[in-house]
Amino acid sequence: MTAVADTAPQSAARERGPRTPWALTAPALLLFVGVLLIPLAMTVMLSFHDWGQYKGIEPVFILKNWHEIATDPYYAEMFWRTFRIAILTTLLTAVLGAPEAYILNRMSGRWKSFFLLVILGPLLISVVARTLGWALLFGGNNGLVNKLLMSLGVIRAPIPFMFTETGMVVALAHVMMPFMVLSVWAALQRLDPQIENAAMSLGAGPVTIIRRIIMPQIMPGVLSGAIIVFSLSASAFATPAIIGGRRLKVAATLAYDEFLNTLNWPLGAAVATLLLVALILIVVGSNALIERRYAEVFR
């Protein structure tokens, strides 16, 4: 996250005491400590509490929940499924989103902004509505998608989309696609518009230009888009819940079930904590890797 540019000039009104910036941020800081950091800490604590069908939550410090997650293969399978779906979704968005961003960038003014609106606009449209759309398109064995694919001769027998990982990946990729396009788009904006002409003047063909000139330069954009898409897919709730139904669980839907159906809050908290920690490690780690690898492009 590099949202805050390193360009803070000194105060406008006049040089003021060193307390002014803190006085201005204090309300927000208090808010965040009070209702973000403390609840998060409480959740971590909760994952160490005991729970029983009849006794409810017992505020003791035990490793029961963590032990259960570590030993019961059900959780390993569920987390593996979560990350498998996230990885496939990320790949799909990268493979389709990066070329689309490149094509968009080469369009002329009015078309460019129109299609940008069409592709990025869904970002702001309710995820429930978008996923519902996929549920309608998939809809059983004679859903629209299957009909279309069969009439085109791409497939012979209908593919089950509802309640499958395939369906989840397709719908998630649609939901996440704008993030990837946006990220690659941003990288393309940093490109020198004359760079392709320069390469061409040196005798490079279109394939070489894309492979040797464009790809290396937009790679950081693809990768940072991939990080966003991955972390959002791994923690997605609405799409897996609607497409996956009650049977096919991922981390977020499992935690939801533990909290609101089984009422085993400590176990749900442990699942959530593990998800949070895993995501932070993956995101921070890959960010660092990318920045080291592409230091010169980011500069």
Binding site: A3, A28, T43, S231, A234, S235, L276, I280
Partner: peptide, 21 residues
């Protein structure tokens, strides 16, 4: 970073944390 952190934290985790809190 703190103020932007709600972007990074999965909303399931936030939901659970707020529910508990």
């Amino acid at each position: 970073a703190l103020f932007l952190s709600p972007l990074m934290i999965p909303h399931v985790v936030l939901g659970i944390a707020f529910l508990r809190f």
